[in-house]
Amino acid sequence: MEKEFCCTCGSKSDLTLLEPVLAKYASVPGSLITILQHAQDIYGYLPTDVLWHVAEKTGIKPAKVLGVATFYTQFRFKPVGKYLILLCQGTACHVNGAKLVEAALEEELGIKDGDTTDDGLFSLKTVACLGCCSLSPVMMINDETYGSLTPSKAKEIIRELRGKQA
């Protein structure tokens, strides 16, 4: 983890994209999380040079910016695939077989929780609870929710999305 954040050489995000956000929030106290959320919307994740830039513009120490960013599960430090799969691990999903769905997704995608496929298409992330418990097990792909999953249904959904690329 340390290595990931130690140096900004090599990364070259377009920092101008963040200007409107910083203009609005940089001097508003308590806005760090909001700024980071916007930054993640813009870049898809939080690149190291963006974190440094936020620190510089807000006057918040870089260590603190990183401390806040790493505290919350919403923030990512690696680019994600075109489709971000959020697999629910809530209690209802757990008792209705979310583990089997997870195994099926890992098998179909060839990646583990937190990783992205080599073709940059899919990222898999397990999350606490999506609040659609009556449809458990549930996953959310780019804000669309898929419910009542079975291992084979989950695989089918992935294949369908993959098919759309061709």
Partner: peptide
């Protein structure tokens, strides 16, 4: 204010920390 994913922020003082832009 949109939270950023931390169960502990349901605790009221942690929630306040988070509202202030800190670790919850």
């Amino acid at each position: 204010k949109a939270g950023a994913g931390a169960f502990v922020c349901g605790e009221e003082t942690a929630l306040i920390e988070s509202l202030e832009g800190q670790r919850g």
